[in-house]
């Protein structure tokens, strides 16, 4: 017997022993089990009146491998091929003009040698901007979403606020697409409680190209009137009191209250999360919400002073988040008539 044999034997021991050790060693906190990972904890996080931002702003849709062969998804791809306009990157829309009105052309380009990046269009709310970025980089991929890394660039965006000191929390999400054999990106720039509908914006593209470190910036000014509608609901749903549904161009927020004694800020939001099943449009169309494979929702939670109540909000993207008949739809929020939460239909208008 050698140390090799002993190590090998140890390697194959009952998995439960390994899991237990992971727990004790702290490798596997409960958040990880739920698919949640802390990415940053800065500043003085107070337990009381703690504002917790669980942000998942975003982003994008990654059509998965076998998808190309799937008839359902093929429809999405065909839509992308047939139509122009950024909404087709993240879903199709049957009704003309409703969402397209919100699309703002930007057309700002930077060059890195022979490689170009262009912010083509944006679509935004008060707090969120989706930016469509084209490149002239050719890729050999099926039309649609591209999951594997292509260019080694880090692409991020933010608003440039007049007060230099201001550093609100920004969250980015990025997805890659193949359109007409070229690489495209959809970048989301998301804030919480910060209106960026008229803000100066920038996208930064950093990375290595031709063995040289490069850093390019594209800037533009947002100039659109954000649309937002708050509908009071006040419906009890189990432990939850759903107070409001807040609708805007790119997302829907469910606001709720729950009586709870919590142990931490994120626990309040992670543990108490409302599940949205579907929405119904004014013409009776039912759109399923696709919360799978880590689909992102943005959530905000904070606790009452006495720690006995949690106020929460969960955001659901209206771009890329809903589908019917196998086709991902961009949802005009004006047409949402009811929502189905935890199996219960709530009529909102």
């Amino acid at each position: 017997m050698t140390e090799y044999d002993l190590n090998k034997a140890l390697n194959n021991i009952d998995e439960r022993l390994i899991e237990e050790a992971e727990e004790v060693l702290g490798n596997r906190p409960s958040e990880k089990k739920q698919g949640i990972r802390h990415v940053a904890v800065k500043g003085n996080v107070r337990r009381r009146t703690l504002r917790v931002v669980l942000t998942a702003a975003c982003v994008v849709v990654l059509l998965v491998g076998t998808v190309a062969a799937s008839g359902l998804v093929q429809k999405v791809i065909e839509n992308v091929r047939k139509q122009n306009g950024m909404v087709t990157l993240v879903g199709s829309q049957d009704e003309e003009g409703v969402i397209e009105e919100a699309v703002v052309p930007i057309d700002q380009t930077v060059e890195i040698d022979d490689l170009t990046f262009t912010v083509e269009n944006i679509i935004g709310d008060a707090e969120v901007v989706f930016a469509e970025i084209s490149t002239n980089y050719q890729i050999d991929e099926p039309e649609g979403y591209v999951l594997k890394p292509v260019l080694g660039f880090n692409i991020s965006g933010k608003a440039l606020f007049p007060e230099e000191e201001t550093d609100y929390g920004v969250m980015n999400g990025l997805a890659q697409f193949c359109r007409d054999g070229k690489l495209w990106y959809m970048l989301t720039i998301s804030y919480n409680n910060v209106d960026i509908s008229h803000a100066d914006m920038m996208v930064e593209i950093k990375g290595k190209w031709n063995d040289t470190q490069v850093d390019r910036v594209i800037e533009w000014k947002n100039d659109y009137e954000p649309k937002k509608e708050t509908i009071a609901v006040n419906q009890q749903l189990g432990d939850y009191l759903i107070t409001n549904v807040v609708l805007s161009t790119t997302r829907m927020e469910l606001q709720y209250e729950i009586e709870s004694v919590r142990t931490s800020g994120q626990d309040a939001v992670v543990r108490h999360k409302l599940l949205l099943d579907s929405i119904k449009l004014d013409d009776g169309t039912v759109l399923q919400y696709n919360e799978i494979n880590g689909f992102m929702v943005q959530a905000l939670g904070y606790a009452s002073e006495d720690d006995t109540k949690t106020f929460g909000g969960r955001y659901f993207n209206l771009i890329g988040g809903f589908s019917t008949g196998g086709v991902v739809k961009v949802v005009p929020f004006e047409r949402i008539k009811s929502i189905v939460v935890e199996g219960v239909e709530i009529t909102i208008r």
Binding site: E31, K32, Q34, G35, I36, R37, H38, V39, A40, V41, K42, G43, N44, V45, L50, R51, V52, V53, L54, T55, A56, A57, C58, V59, V60, V61, L62, L63, V64, V67, S70, L72, V73, V76, Y145, N154, S156, D167, G169, V170, M171, N172, G173, L174, A175, G265, Q266, V270, N290, I292, N293, G294, F295, M296, V297, N317, G320, G321, S323, V328
Partner: peptide, 26 residues
């Protein structure tokens, strides 16, 4: 449902005083 698109966060937030959490694939 497995054929639906997924959304994915690719970078993180920095926000003074706030606890930020990224949701990933489990």
């Amino acid at each position: 449902r497995n054929r639906w698109p997924v959304w994915k966060i690719v970078n993180q937030v920095q926000d003074e005083g706030k606890l930020l959490v990224e949701v990933m694939l489990n």
